[in-house]
Nucleic acid binder design. Structure first.
Lengths: 180, 180
DNA sequence: TTACTGACCGACCATCCGGTCAGTGCGTAA
DNA sequence: TTACGCACTGACCGGATGGTCGGTCAGTAA
């Protein structure tokens, strides 16, 4: 029998990413996790707290992507690896990206995760910038921001906007662009 | 005295973009627009309907951006104009972009605007693609998706993630990239 | 056996919020 | 003057939802 606390987290993750945070009443989480209301509040201070815990867990995924490249590769190769692992994760862990997207922008949920988001985004910026520093130190900051925007935009469009999104082709196109 | 219906729309637009749709009770709209609950339902079928009407209005902005270029310019120049007018609008009409961002992703609001979003996004794809068709018909589709992803990503990062975002520099960088 | 802990339950509460509705007053056409 | 329509009001309703609380029970240590 799976641990009930984990069960709550799993179910809530799924529901939050599919239906959004505001639109997922705890009663639904209880029902689908076969758990009582009381138990949720026994393990988590509040609904918000549950979200924070779930969101924190996804940080691991981001770090994993950022560390896909090996240290002794040439910088362009690092970028290629980064793109590759990003697209791979985007396809295989769709749910986590969906959750992040749903939750990072709307002001109420955003406010509640603000510190985590800030921390994470500067981590990402730093790791990307350290690569571009090796390529073009003069413009590394702008290059990093643009690079990140491309990946964020792809995520946004793929999960939120377009029905038939040629992920693979866009991946190759970006790889070509950055492999030069 | 300004028309009360407009007053409702203005106030609601502001509040929805600042606080998100779910997190803005109609009671607050009433209060800030100096209007009774009843009047909102006199002018709009429901809260959802109010959102649809507001969201529809922003479509005009998108069309405006898409049509910034003149017909007889070379394609690369058209792209540059497109980028220019996009960044200009992003800065001057921040509120509308914020609203779109807040409302397009979360599944519940998304569902209710689905047809409008679909319509709009294929309009955008078409207009961008018609430019890339003149440059590289072979790859025009992927080029268009990537181009759009870049702009969406910039919007996302600028409004949602990073505090100090070098918009101007990113704009120039993109212009250089596409002016070749 | 006893005493204690902590996972777990579910009835209950307070509040909030979208939506309704009966009614008021003003402008206008007959 | 009357009658009608329409912008407008605000008290009210019903349902949903986050959160509380008293309590049960299994496991375990003494």
């Amino acid at each position: 029998m799976i641990d009930k606390k984990d069960q709550i987290i799993n179910v809530a993750t799924k529901l939050f990413s599919e239906r959004g945070f505001e639109n997922t009443p705890l009663s639904l989480v209880c029902e689908m996790a076969n758990v009582s209301k009381g138990l949720i509040f026994h393990h988590f201070k509040s609904k918000n707290d549950l979200l924070r815990e779930i969101f924190s867990k996804t940080t691991g995924l981001i770090i994993e992507i950022s560390e896909a490249q090996e240290a002794d590769q040439p910088p362009r190769q690092k970028l290629v690896e980064l793109i590759r692992s990003f697209f791979a994760q985007l396809e295989s862990d769709k749910m986590f990206f969906q959750l992040n997207l749903n939750v990072m922008l709307p002001p109420n949920t955003r406010a509640l995760l603000n510190d985590l988001i800030k921390e994470r985004s500067s981590f990402i910026l730093d790791s990307v910038k350290s690569i571009f520093d090796e390529i073009d130190p003069e413009n590394s900051l702008v290059l990093s921001y643009t690079f990140i925007a491309e990946l964020d935009g792809v995520t946004f469009d793929y999960l939120g906007i377009f029905d038939e999104y040629p992920l693979k082709q866009i991946e190759t196109h970006l790889i070509n662009r950055y492999a030069e």
